[in-house]
């Protein structure tokens, strides 16, 4: 790698995501990676680590705070600009779409920063994908529980077998052009109202 290793600071309230990005950067050979979870610590951390590149997640409401800090420190420390290069809007767009914004010390060459940005962006995207899949799995499990409960109500109140209870839910859903889960949810709500 040309030149000395760059110092990188990651600011992310999401600890898991922060560690995934940190790990990716370390695997890519970057030894000087610091992670903080609260923007309020940034002053001290910047003094300690003198970062060349700073990442912050876009959900973080304290981005404005961070930028203000950079503008204050501009005079006394090293200038930190946003993103690598204003001309590289494609890269900026990819970063914002992935949910991350990057600040880079002035004068740093684009080719040195690009692989670091690419890594952070791909790890951010991978994390979003994981979260989405986990969310889908969780809601599938939730839905199954609701359908089970609705079946139970039908079995008890109408004396149906489990398969008949399920068939009734399904045919009702089809007749009303609604989702099975919605019918099941309505049934549970109604049962709760009638039999508190």
């Amino acid at each position: 790698m040309p030149g000395p290793d760059l110092s990188i600071l990651i600011i992310d309230e999401n600890r898991i995501r922060a560690s995934i990005i940190e790990e990716g950067l370390r695997e890519a050979g970057h030894a000087r990676v610091a992670v903080i979870h609260d923007v309020n610590e940034v002053g001290r951390t910047i003094q300690d680590t003198m970062p060349d590149v700073v990442f912050i997640d876009l959900e973080n409401p304290k981005r404005d705070t961070l930028e203000h800090f950079f503008s204050l420190s501009r005079a006394i420390q090293r200038p930190i600009a946003m993103f690598v290069d204003r001309s590289d809007t494609g890269m900026i767009e990819k970063a914002v779409e992935a949910g991350v914004s990057a600040y880079v010390v002035d004068g740093l060459k684009k080719e040195r920063v690009k692989p670091i940005l690419d890594m952070a962006i791909s790890r951010f995207n991978a994390f979003s994908r994981l979260t989405r899949e986990l969310e889908q799995a969780r809601s599938a499990l939730e839905e199954r529980k609701i359908v089970e409960q609705a079946k139970g109500i039908l079995m008890k109140t109408r004396g149906l077998s489990e398969s008949d209870a399920y068939a009734l839910l399904r045919s009702t859903a089809m007749n009303q052009n609604r989702r099975l889960i919605d019918i099941a949810q309505s049934l549970i709500t109604a049962a709760n109202l009638l039999d508190p």
């Binding site: 876009l58 959900e59 973080n60 409401p61 304290k62 981005r63 404005d64 930028e67 809007t89 900026i92 767009e93 914002v96 914004s101």
Partner: peptide, 15 residues
């Protein structure tokens, strides 16, 4: 949105 910085960037990028 959560920050004015996000408003600024997403407006600039056309989101």
């Amino acid at each position: 949105e959560t920050s004015w910085a996000n408003i600024r960037d997403r407006a600039a990028l056309g989101h």
